[in-house]
Design a protein around this nucleic acid. Sequence first.
DNA 1: ATGCCCAATGGGCATTTGCTTAGTCAGTGG
DNA 2: CCACTGACTAAGCAAATGCCCATTGGGCAT
Lengths: 320, 320
Amino acid sequence: MSTGRFTPETTRLDDAARAGWLYYVAGNTQDEIARKLGVSRQSAQRLVAMAVSERLVKVRLDHPIGRCMDLAATLCDRFPLTTCEVVPSDPGAPELLTGIAIAAAALLEKTLRAPEPRIIAMGTGRALRATVEQLSRMECPQHKIVSLLGNVMSDGSATPYNAVIPMADRVGARHYPVPLPVLARDAEELRALHAQEPVRNSLALCAEADLTMVGVGQMDMSAPVLVDGFLRPAEMAELRAAGAAGEITSWVFDDRGHVIDCAHNRRVASAPLPRAADRPVIAVAVGESKIKAIRAALTGHLVNGLITNELTAERLIALP
Amino acid sequence: MSTGRFTPETTRLDDAARAGWLYYVAGNTQDEIARKLGVSRQSAQRLVAMAVSERLVKVRLDHPIGRCMDLAATLCDRFPLTTCEVVPSDPGAPELLTGIAIAAAALLEKTLRAPEPRIIAMGTGRALRATVEQLSRMECPQHKIVSLLGNVMSDGSATPYNAVIPMADRVGARHYPVPLPVLARDAEELRALHAQEPVRNSLALCAEADLTMVGVGQMDMSAPVLVDGFLRPAEMAELRAAGAAGEITSWVFDDRGHVIDCAHNRRVASAPLPRAADRPVIAVAVGESKIKAIRAALTGHLVNGLITNELTAERLIALP
DNA sequence: ATGCCCAATGGGCATTTGCTTAGTCAGTGG
DNA sequence: CCACTGACTAAGCAAATGCCCATTGGGCAT
């Protein structure tokens, strides 16, 4: 395009946006778009695809699917929740994260659009990672994004499902990766780590976060903490014997949602869970295997909000 | 079913919403949806279509261009326009010409790239001058560029915002500068001028132009015609008293877009305006002060295309 | 019971879309 | 100077989609 000579990057995205609008809003065919934009059909198709992949087009379903609304209402009723969102399940792939990721991203964006500075605290995990991938690019340097837990594994490598760094990148906010391991070697080392100035800063930010978003981990042999190597099978077995039902930012809790007093939790370097907080603390989780963990977290008021899907919600309600 | 009461309507809409969700959010194909919902593919397609037609799926474009496209669509809807382009305003300099100049230049280049000979008729003014400056250099001797109005001021000097000569220079096309003043001394002189062979040629070319591009002048004390000395303040006052709302290539029209029958217009030497033409006649204009003039030109179908910016488009739509 | 009406259904077909291959062209750097 | 890169276009194909139309079957009046 002729206008390309000024800001190739911007212009390309602009054209993608134009193509996306013509396609999704005006209902043009890609051929028409190609003609209107003066490019080949293939380019038009690329532009439309780019508008989607760059998350320029947001599809929202403006119909409360009766089922989902009922489930959300029931969950709010049964557990101490202030917000609850249930998205439809894909019957073929009920553990698909896309749906809850979109819902969670919409929630994050609502906070991020605020002109006043906000603090958003994030956990880690696949669900949050998927959430971040659904965020639009935006420019909000006024906000701070802080990690609830360290991103260093015991062997010194970075954790795989860190969400804070890509999130800060996408939305142009400042971020505070905590220079901490997930687990300290012992209580002694933990004290030393927490005494560091940057760590104390981060923890202080977490404590006053306007929005906290976390994943929920189950405590069985398919647990993320196990798969990702934070725990050895023997430790897992030990924790389960001690009544462990789930974990949030590595804090292991029992089936009533009480953080267990045990050796493991004494080594957890993560920010303390803001129990029964007045500000939103949202769990983002789906899956058959996580149901007990989610229920425990809700019961114990470790979170006050939940984003999940239809199937998981059904199972949560079906529990005795 | 989700609810105890049996409401076929609701259920059907719910299914539509579900199908829409699976299609647009989860990215299923209609075949998969059909399988998952246990209906035929055709029914799935009907459900998806219903989700759209019932406005259950809302598509939003998360990009500044989205708003511009919306505004353009509204303008096309409200006025008899076949093409309309709205470019983002620079919030700091909402009257900046660069944006619309780039858009207008892109439009010109699309025509200029045609291998068949084309005739492009150009008006004058700052906007068109800025447009020409955005044109890439190219070599298209097959086209003809003709001026809609003379480039000689009453004192014999050339008009400052001529666009045809630099345009022809940039794109390597033949051009037809009209050896005419902007205003004849009187109707008598006008007849004599228009009787000249080269003038008649030019006017004939204007009449069959494939693309006509003009600026729009307001009729107030900041008007270009006044600033550039084509009109004296007294004449301007007179015209305004006669209901003048704007001018295009010196033809002064009222707020319904009718060229006023007055002494001034009887002296105008410019090519006649191709009212309600079948070929594109594009106005290129921005600015708070031009809004009434633009609206009049659109209403009266003096042009069938508009290139403007976001702020001006908003104001045009906000007018009663 | 019979026939009719109408909405919903699914088959079939033309169009649209996503993607691949091959070729072109401008800019880049050795 | 030329090979290389990257991005584009053209052509074409298989899958996905949109839509027409004949069919079905339930509800309703006769």
